[in-house]
Nucleic acid binder design. Structure first.
Ligand code: MN
Ligand code: MN
Ligand code: MN
Ligand code: MN
Lengths: 221, 221
DNA sequence: TCACATTTTTAGACTAATCTAAATTATAAT
DNA sequence: ATTATAATTTAGATTAGTCTAAAAATGTGA
C-alpha cells in the first residue's frame, strides 16, 4: 500500500501530465505539492523503483499503468467524497476541496463502493468534473468555455476550470452554479468581457478571465 | 495539530486509563498500539512535553485536560463515523471499526458538526457506546450485564462489552442486535451459562463469556 | 558556439516514528 | 534481605520525508 505522501505525489504527477503533454518535470511537481525540488528528486527516485512511473534524470516522469490506476482511483475517491459533502452535508462547493483531500486517502474499497451507491452513482462532482468509475473510465461530456458563446447564444453551466475558493465564492455571489442558464447579451470587444443574463434574472458583466473559467453546454434557446 | 500517530497514542492512553484506575503504563500502551515498549517510552517523553499528559519515569502516565479533550473528540468522531457507516452505508456492525479508525483522524470541526446533524445527533454508536457531544459530555445509561439477569427476567440489548469481529458475527448469527429482547429461561449453575429466549422466537444457550459481554436494560415484561 | 539563466540533482543534515538488544529499576517471592 | 522476574528505559540504528546550499546539467539567445 502506498503512503499518503506517495499517493499525493502520484496524483500530482497525474494532474500535471494531464495538461503537460504526458510528462511531469521536477519543478512542476514541487510547486504542485508545495515542497522543494530537492525533495521531489529524492521522491521520484524512490517511487520510480516502486514502478508507479518511469523516471529519467533531467527528463521528468510519466506514469505506468499501475500509477495511472492508483491516481485515477484517488480522483474517484476525492470526487465522490466531494459529492457527499455537498449533496448530503450541505457544504458549499468552495468548502469541500481540503476535506476531500484528506478523505481520499482512507483505504477501503468496500467503503467507496457503498458510498458510490449511497450517492446514486453520480457521474460528476460538485464542480462538474467527471467521476471515473471503478475501472477508471471517465464519462466525457461535450462542453465549451463560456468565452466561445456568441451574442444571443445560451448555455447551461456544467463545470468550472478554476477551483479556487475566491472564484467559486464570486460565482456564488452572482448566483452562478452548476445548472445555471447563461445567455450572452453583448460581447464587449474592448476587453473581451461579456454582458450576460443569468437564469433570465440578473444582468452581469463577466471578465474574460471569468468566462474562460466557466464551462457550458450550448442550448438552442 | 497532533499527528495521526500522536492521536492514536493519546486515544490509547485514554482507553487504558478508563479501565485502569486513571493511569496507563508503558506495556499496556505498547500492547494496545502493537508497538514495542521502547517506542512507547520514547513517545511518552516527547508527547508529555506537549502537555497532553503527565509522565514520570517508571510510573506511567495520566492525561491532562488538554489530552482528555483531544481523546474525547477522537472518540466522538470515531463513533459518529461508525453510525454513518452502519445507518447510511449499510455496513454490518462488525465491519466498521477499522474504517472509523481512519476516518476519525480527518481534521475538520465543521465536518463533524454537519455529520452529527446529518445523522440526527445520535447518542449511541452501532455497538451501543455513548457518543460524547461537542463539549465532551457522554450521555450515560443504566445498563447491566446479561449475566445479572435472573431466571424469568427480560432485558433489551443496549450494548456489547467485547467489540471483536468473531463475537459480533456470532451475535449476528443468533439474531442478537441492539434492541433485541432477551429473556432468561434457565440458569445453568454447572457452568454459569444461560438458556435464553431471543425476541420470543429462538431458544439459545449462551455461555458465561457471551453473557458477560452483552449489556441489557432490564424491562418489566 | 559561448555565456548566462534555469532546471535539476547531489550532499549533508534534521525530525518523527519505529526497531532490537542491553542495561536499569521496580516488584514479588522466598 | 536476597534473589528472581517483570517492566521500563537507554543506546544505537533504520526508514520516510523533508530542508538548504552547492554542484552539475540543460537550454537559450546573441
Ligand atoms: Mn491528498
Ligand atoms: Mn472537485
Ligand atoms: Mn486511529
Ligand atoms: Mn463502536
Amino acid at each position: 500500500m502506498a503512503t499518503e505522501t506517495e499517493e499525493n505525489y502520484i496524483k500530482a504527477i497525474f494532474k500535471i501530465t494531464e495538461k503537460n503533454q504526458g510528462t511531469a518535470n521536477t519543478n512542476a511537481v514541487a510547486q504542485h505539492l508545495n515542497t522543494s525540488p530537492a525533495s521531489v528528486t529524492d521522491m521520484l527516485k524512490r517511487l520510480s523503483e516502486k514502478e508507479y512511473f518511469h523516471y529519467e534524470k533531467y527528463k521528468g516522469v510519466y506514469l505506468t499503468t499501475k500509477g495511472i490506476k492508483l491516481a485515477t482511483n484517488l480522483v474517484r475517491k476525492h470526487r465522490l467524497w466531494e459529492v457527499f459533502l455537498v449533496d448530503k452535508l450541505k457544504f458549499q462547493w468552495d468548502e469541500v476541496h481540503d476535506i476531500a483531500e484528506q478523505l481520499e486517502h482512507v483505504d477501503s474499497d468496500e467503503l467507496i463502493t457503498r458510498l458510490d451507491t449511497f450517492l446514486g452513482n453520480p457521474k460528476y462532482d460538485p464542480h462538474g468534473d467527471p467521476i471515473p468509475n471503478a475501472d477508471g473510465k471517465f464519462t466525457l461530456r461535450s462542453q465549451t468555455s463560456l468565452m466561445n458563446l456568441q451574442k444571443g447564444e445560451t448555455g447551461i453551466v456544467v463545470g468550472v476550470r478554476n477551483h479556487d475558493t475566491p472564484f467559486l465564492q464570486y460565482l456564488n455571489k452572482i448566483c452562478v452554479n452548476l445548472g445555471t442558464k447563461i445567455s450572452v447579451v453583448n460581447n464587449i470587444d474592448f476587453d473581451h468581457s461579456k454582458e450576460v443574463s443569468i437564469d433570465d434574472e440578473n444582468r452581469v458583466i463577466l471578465s474574460q478571465k471569468a468566462c474562460v473559467n466557466i464551462y457550458v453546454k450550448k442550448t438552442n434557446d
